[in-house]
Amino acid sequence: MSDRSMQEPTLLILTALADRPRHGYGLMQEIATISAGRYRMRTGTLYGALDRLLGQNLIAVDREEIADGRARRFYTLTGQGRAALTAEAERLRSVAAEAERRLRAPRPRLQGGAA
Rank of each mutant, 00 (worst) to 15 (best):
S5D: 04
S2Q: 08
R42A: 15
A105V: 00
E90D: 02
R102S: 03
I59Y: 02
L46R: 13
Y75H: 12
A67P: 00
N57F: 11
E98A: 12
Y47G: 03
R102Q: 06
E65M: 11
F74T: 08
Q7G: 11
R20T: 14
R102M: 05
R107Y: 00
D51E: 14
T76G: 01
R102F: 04
D68H: 06
G48R: 10
G37E: 15
G55S: 06
D68E: 06
L92I: 08
S2I: 04
P106M: 10
A71P: 01
D62Y: 03
P106D: 10
T10H: 13
T33Q: 15
Q56I: 09
G55W: 00
Y25K: 12
T78I: 02
G37T: 15
R63L: 02
S35H: 13
Y47S: 11
M6Y: 04
L85M: 01
N57K: 15
G44M: 05
S5I: 03
R20N: 13
I66C: 08
S5W: 02
I66R: 14
V61L: 07
Y25M: 10
L58F: 11
R4G: 03
A87I: 12
D3S: 06
A60E: 15
T86N: 03
A115S: 07
P21E: 13
V61Q: 11
L53S: 07
Q29M: 15
G55K: 03
P9F: 06
E64Q: 15
D62I: 02
Q111E: 14
V95P: 09
A16M: 04
